[in-house]
Amino acid sequence: MSSKRQLQKESTRKKIIETAYLVYSEQGFNATTATIAKEAGLSHGAIFVHFPSLDELMTCLIEEFGATLTLELHSLVETNKSMEELLRIYLEVLIKHEKFYSRLITERSRLPEEVRMTLANLQSLIAHHFNNVIEREIDKQTVKKIPVHMIFNTWMGLTHYYLLNKDLFSPDTPVLERYREDIISTFLELIKR
């Protein structure tokens, strides 16, 4: 295959992934491949040239989303960040992807297993960053001696609660941005020694 065709193929694939991200963010994972094709300005068949099945498209999309998040988090979390800085970075990254991330957590049980696993792996990565910081802060006695997983799960519970009830907390504007300071300061107050 000529390199020009290869490039074009690559750019169409990228276009499909980017469009799927936007369409799923807006409409949820019930959106059809026909909608994605239409929004991307492609024929319906073109999608299946690149992704033989819907599961495959979703898995690729979540994997790329995961890779983006991994890089964004990893490049921001320097080795000596404080708990507060970590929470800020985490929310910063999530705010950028709020709509899509909300869809993932609200519709999780209906997603293919492969996609659910990829999402869970993404959470593990976040747990890894938390673990590094929490252990250091517990050693320094700046954070209460609570099991790492409970500190992490409490934080996830708190942020997910706002995301899942966005219609009640912030129907018209992104919810995490609006409550960012409340969420961070309250959580820190709870875990600080």
């Binding site: 593990s124 747990a127 673990n131 790492v148 997983h149 799960n153």
Partner: peptide, 8 residues
Amino acid sequence: DFIVRTQG
């Protein structure tokens, strides 16, 4: 071990 410890 890591998953159990950090995520429960």
